[in-house]
Design a protein around this nucleic acid. Structure first.
Length: 154
DNA sequence: CGAATTTGACCGGCGC
DNA sequence: GCGCCGGTCAAATTCG
């Protein structure tokens, strides 16, 4: 059985909650999801609005998979790529191409284990997904559940 | 030919 | 203040 590993972890030191889920995304393909309070809010200055600070959500997950680029159902437009220090792989910057949607994500490979892809999401989509790939439909569904759960708790 | 990507320039925050 | 570092812009280029 081919096993993917999907690990959600907080970027802040204080996780809001933790959970662990196993589910199958396809026949003979299981995904193990480890969640340790993956959402945090952060104050971010928006340059266009002087001094105005905006709360943004951020969550990060690592995926060990043969697949390099994870298709999460959203349409992304690449806008940058940068070599990061102490990492032999570059980091890619994407923005959600849905009109008015300000969600961004970064993708980079783990410096130690090059089989691990680290994906960082900034912001939350306030519009429906445009497409769903079969293998990641349930992952997405879990994301949405987590987002709703988190919003209810605040 | 319009849209997406590539890639060096640019910019702002932060540490020294 | 200056230079490094990470993030973004945008012109050129490639792609569909």
């Amino acid at each position: 059985m081919e096993k993917h590993e999907l690990v959600l972890f907080p970027s802040s030191s204080t996780p809001s909650y933790a959970s662990e889920i196993d589910f199958e995304v396809a026949q003979n393909s299981k995904v193990h999801v480890k969640t340790e309070g993956f959402l945090r809010t952060e104050k971010k200055k928006i340059s266009s609005q002087k001094g105005c600070k905006k709360e943004q959500h951020r969550y990060v997950f690592e995926t060990r998979s043969k697949i390099d680029i994870l298709d999460d159902g959203y349409k992304w437009r690449k806008y940058g790529e940068k070599m990061v220090k102490n990492n032999k792989f570059s980091r890619s910057y994407y923005r959600c191409s849905y009109e008015g949607c300000n969600v961004k994500k970064q993708i980079q490979r783990h410096s130690k284990d090059e089989q691990v892809v680290v994906t960082t999401y900034d912001g939350m989509h306030m519009h429906p997904v445009e497409k769903l790939t079969e293998s990641f439909e349930q992952i997405l569904r879990n994301f949405n559940i987590y987002n709703q759960f988190y919003n209810l708790q605040r």
